[in-house]
Design a protein around this nucleic acid. Structure first.
Lengths: 183, 183
DNA sequence: CCGGTCGATGAATAATTATGCGCGTCTTGC
DNA sequence: GCAAGACGCGCATAATTATTCATCGACCGG
């Protein structure tokens, strides 16, 4: 029955129009300030996803996206964990340090700042530990260790210069300007 | 000017009706599932805060509360981040998260100590994340990020001086003295 | 004491979001 | 092959939220 079809599909990216649309929504919401469903609809249309406001209302509800002072924001809590994988085209990356890190950064890294020999990473609520685990697994020499809160990861490095390197590398990873692996 | 009055008021708990109302909103939102501003208005009335829906819309926006699938919820993760950044660029209420922070500090901050560029806050068990969220939402430039444990919040700032400023500002907020130390 | 401001609201209203219905498509069971 | 059931989605419309406009009361500088 239907379930089987879905499984097969999820195996190869998301050919299901509904999933593709939702993935696009996720990216748009993460990337820019969306203030209304009408605005979102227009952007989606531009991306080739013609859609109705009513459907967006349902999509956003199902995805758990919330609307606040600054427009729509990504889901909070476990909801985020379930959906993130569907969002980043970087599907669930198989083991292997860097690959997994790429997906984690794409999906969960919001911002990064350095302070002394530390780097603070922000993520949607609840995703911090996931990102931290991925970063640990990557085995970068500059990363002495990480501590994850709910939406923040504290990365401890040997010194300020190392912190700067980590910061830069993560941002490049996120932007997709990928290059070799970091230290 | 007016500011002086406000400072004086914050000195004595929250005698300002607006602040009291917002504090009540904070508690209600945290305690139960509020699905609409009308519903919230009714609850507030029951608590002695007669208020208009229009005002609630403004309160909610200023406090950074978001609305999602399950009703209104306090800002977390990205929501808080966006709120904070919104203050800098646009003419959005700079004092945005302050209302929430005031209440949070009053209610949960037990002690504060600094260490290098960090500030460690203690709270009653379980309240750490709430306080951290409020602090994030306030959007202080000195606060790069926070990590909450169960009863401890680690606040990371750019440097020792900033840590000292944050420490001082929080204690003043709690004592009700001033609200000046933003930065 | 008197205009001139400013912040906080309420009322009314515009803008946005949620939802009841119904249609068309796809699947399954017989 | 055909009826039943499950979905996804658009339309129209109810429900909610944001915003504009007008007040009101508390200062401020004269």
């Amino acid at each position: 029955m239907r379930v089987l079809r879905m499984i097969m599909h999820s195996t190869q990216e998301a050919s299901d129009p509904k999933e593709r649309r939702r993935a696009a929504i996720l990216e748009l919401v993460r990337a820019q300030r969306i203030r209304s469903q009408g605005e979102l609809a227009r952007l989606l249309t531009k991306l080739g996803h013609e859609v109705n406001q009513a459907t967006l209302s349902r999509d956003l509800r199902d995805m758990g996206v919330v609307k606040g002072a600054g427009g729509y924001q990504l889901p909070t809590g476990e909801a985020a964990l379930q959906l993130a994988s569907a969002g980043s085209g970087a599907a669930t990356a198989p083991a292997g340090g860097s690959a997994a890190l790429y997906g984690a950064v794409q999906a969960w890294l919001s911002t990064s700042v350095t302070a002394q020999n530390q780097v603070l990473l922000r993520t949607p609520a609840g995703a911090a530990s996931t990102l931290a685990v991925a970063l640990d697994a990557a085995g970068w020499k500059d990363v002495l260790g990480t501590i994850a809160g709910d939406d923040t990861v504290l990365v401890v490095t040997p010194d300020p210069r190392a912190a700067a390197r980590v910061h830069k590398a993560l941002l490049e990873l996120k932007r997709g300007t990928t290059q070799g692996g970091r230290a």
